[in-house]
Nucleic acid binder design. Structure first.
Lengths: 343, 343
DNA sequence: CTGAAAGCGCTAACAA
DNA sequence: TTGTTAGCGCTTTCAG
């Protein structure tokens, strides 16, 4: 009696055919205006919602867009999610996020569930193992990769090369000579990319560069690197991302090393933490909105025709803040900024 | 030909009935071991995945658990999500998050989609309008509310009263007299709760308390409050949450006001930002793991019997870090900590 | 513009 | 243990 309303129960009440009720929702333009309003009114009153599963079963579409991230506690991804949600809403797609950190320990079956329910999946910064897993399911769901270039697949990446070179040059301008770079996860494409960029810069400028061991892209990862950084003797450090940079600064602080007075630190991404960190982080801003736009563009492209893959590269933008300052015992030379500048 | 494998295509290849293939996945124990392995092997080989929509259509279950948060950029929620995911995975539920910030501007239809696809929904810190929206859909999906006590519904809340009182007393012990509290969003239950706790403490201790205008629980919200806090003349400030506290400290800094030397700041939640903030935040730790556990417990309870609502309250834990120090021109009295202590 | 009928892929009784 | 038979709620031809 008080069971969930369906198109049938509505149709019966209205004395019309279920298909008509269905049309009132899925193809309103095919139903006469008055009937449509009557249907919608009754639906509203009875609290009817179209059954997403049933609809998906026949249309193959749920209106859901999945975002799979390595670590949702990394605000880089939450910011991205936010931008994507906004765009998605405008085009009638709801975005849901999941974290693939458990994929190793938990049954992948769980992920298949998410895969089964979304119209497309955006996979962020996949490690190699996740990659191969996804590759196998590539034909089940349209896939867009972020922060990894994969031939033949739709990808959107941020190119930080130019920006990192500029920040490197700024380090030199500020009198730094001993420079270090803390690498990100071993099997992350983006991590390799960034280290490459910094290394090529160092070679081009003939700068001595110490690359420090792979580190988790998290605050704690950064804190853990403080010792290694201190021992490296570097006065300026590139970090894989802002979380790491933020943690590193904290870790250095507890060792009595100040930033930027003793050691300058540069991050990457301009995650929200970059601003609250003290000192605020000099970093490379990922253009989130454009990123999201391109990602959503790639998604809709795939939705239209699964073969229409595209590869997009967006340039990161260097942002000078407080964490990069003059080298100790050396004033700035051609610097465009002063230590202590805010924002 | 190369269409997606279904239980039918598998059944045909194996010369068995589709129902048997179905059982091999949904009730493996009902199928002979050898047949089961044969089915699974072929399925693996053909890349078969059970169609979630079809399964959900008949069983009414998708294996998905939804988490609806007000602002996914608030790491309080991402930490919670993380804990929930871990527990969920252990019990065969995949957790997906969505942000309801767009609900106002976008069609609620989008949310109904998420609602339609999950077995249960955990709704975090709903504003009043979101609440009423959810209330209408209460019978469509099992609902668990976080950070809001709703009679008759399953709720899990954190009770910060005791902890806030302790921190308040610590402020007094450190010689503070002019104390302020920055309130959270107007229609947030948790915000009202926390302000109440602080106010009742102030009354009990006969302390002059300035309550400052409602503020968004975000870093920027906190930054924006710096002026008001400065003008209030307070030497110690309670903030609605850590994001706000973190932003406030930053905002004060740019005005040349140091924490805790000039103004002490106390947050709430112990979000991940509390540690990187300089100085690190004195705060009330939300016991995330226990929270997640209780939430998942409530979910499974509802899944078993929709009437089995429960209301759980968990106590927050005060955490003393650097952002609370002695009042200016007044040494600590019975303090249990020294300014400058890390962690 | 609306009705009729078929079926999406799977599960759940019930038989055998 | 396996096959049989019905649907789950919706969309979608194709007629009318």
């Amino acid at each position: 009696m008080t069971s969930k309303p369906t198109i049938y129960s509505l149709a019966e009440e209205l004395g019309v055919h279920p298909a008509t009720v269905s049309r009132a929702f899925s193809r309103p333009e095919l139903v006469s205006a008055e009937l449509r309003t009557k249907v919608l009114a009754l639906a509203e009153q009875r609290g009817f919602r179209v059954n997403v599963a049933a609809r998906q079963l026949v249309t193959g579409r749920s209106g859901l867009l999945g975002l799979l991230v390595p670590d949702i506690e990394n605000m880089y991804f939450t910011t991205l999610f936010h931008s994507m949600s906004r765009l998605g809403a405008a085009m009638g797609l709801s975005v849901v996020v999941t974290d693939w950190r458990f994929m190793e320990t938990q049954q992948a079956e769980i992920f298949d569930r998410v895969l089964g329910v979304v119209d497309a999946l955006v996979v962020a910064a996949p490690r190699d193992d996740v990659m191969t897993y996804m590759a196998r399911r590539r034909k089940e769901v349209p896939l867009v990769f972020i922060n990894r270039l994969i031939p033949g697949a739709s990808c959107v990446v941020v190119d930080n090369r130019e920006a990192l070179w500029q920040l490197g040059d700024e380090m030199l301008a500020q009198g730094h000579h001993a420079i270090a770079a803390v690498a990100g996860p071993t099997d992350s494409w983006a991590a390799a990319q960034r280290i490459n960029d910094v290394e090529s810069w160092a070679r081009a400028r003939n700068v001595e560069l110490t690359v420090l061991g792979h580190c988790e892209p998290s605050i704690h990862g950064g804190i853990a690197m403080a010792g290694a950084v201190e021992q490296s003797g570097a006065t300026a450090v590139f970090c894989f991302d802002d979380l790491m940079a933020s943690g590193l600064i904290k870790g250095l602080q507890t060792r009595g090393i100040r930033t930027p007075e003793d050691i300058s630190v540069v991050g990457c991404d301009d995650a929200s933490v970059a601003l609250v960190t003290s000192p605020s982080l000099t970093t490379v801003r990922a253009p989130y909105d454009e990123l999201a736009e391109q990602v959503m563009g790639a998604v809709t492209g795939l939705l239209k025709s699964p073969e229409a893959t595209r590869q997009v590269s967006i340039d990161g933008v260097p942002i000078l803040r407080e964490s990069l300052g003059p080298a100790p015992h050396a004033g700035p030379r051609t610097s465009t900024k002063k230590a202590g500048t805010t924002r």
